[in-house]
Design a protein around this nucleic acid. Sequence first.
DNA 1: CTACAACCTGTAGCCACTACAGCTTCAAGA
DNA 2: TCTTGAAGCTGTAGTGGCTACAGGTTGTAG
Lengths: 148, 148
Amino acid sequence: MRPAKTLERVIPIGTLAERTGVKVETIRYYEQVGLLPEPERSEGNQRRYGRAHVERLAFIKHARDLGFAVESIRTLLRLSDTPGMACDEAHAIAAEHLDEVRDKIARLRSLEAELARIATVCSGGVAASDCAVIEALADHSHCEHHSA
Amino acid sequence: MRPAKTLERVIPIGTLAERTGVKVETIRYYEQVGLLPEPERSEGNQRRYGRAHVERLAFIKHARDLGFAVESIRTLLRLSDTPGMACDEAHAIAAEHLDEVRDKIARLRSLEAELARIATVCSGGVAASDCAVIEALADHSHCEHHSA
DNA sequence: CTACAACCTGTAGCCACTACAGCTTCAAGA
DNA sequence: TCTTGAAGCTGTAGTGGCTACAGGTTGTAG
């Protein structure tokens, strides 16, 4: 007897989407940009995926969720495909991305501080000519933040 | 005698760019999407800006630096143009944006934590088959983070 | 008057999708 | 076996907020 549906050896794109949490259109996009290898096709030209695709797409999704750029993921996948290759490069990509994330957090925190200041002063209800939000945006003098 | 160049009443786009820190192309873009009103033109069809444009562009730049979407800025500008209008809306926009920024910070912090974990374990030099970065991305099991 | 920087318009590209139009295929029920 | 409707297909265009050209015109200092 054949295995239950959720354990089948080849699955269509919709099932792959469900199983990985990646949308159908996004899966086709990943194929188009060369992240996901082209799968076999049914007689009627529909994509049929196997276990390897599920794993690879899960890898991609995990990396995307962590904010890695598609270009970085391409490199990470290449590294994971060549097991003899040194891990230095993967480590460098992760470390660099971590730096970027930390930078982004720092910048957002300074935005948060200024926004909080602006939003607190103005509690609404006043005429716009006196609105602290508008005034704060119009007047750049007493703020020391930097461009994004 | 005429005033010094930096104090002139009408300025070309390049000077406006210098004075506000907004690139020439971006200024034209803001005009195109209706954030900055169309200025007068010279006889030769070149844009000539006045004091009001400098102020409005500074407002826009400040708001963009704070991460406000162009659409929000459009509303904020409209509010600042109608001085009788209540400030509630401006306050709501700022408060909502502050919420978004805080959300973003929270999400980035959880990314940071996982990236730090991944990057620390793997210090490079090992073969990719044993690389903690690759493994962590391939194996989703011991991580509880959520999609972006 | 000449040279050259600065300006002009319009279009295409960036990232990582997302949405749609207009078609074909698959699979389950009658 | 036939029908129906969900799911699949390709290709194109749109998102946001710019940025980067190409190929021309204007402004201005020497």
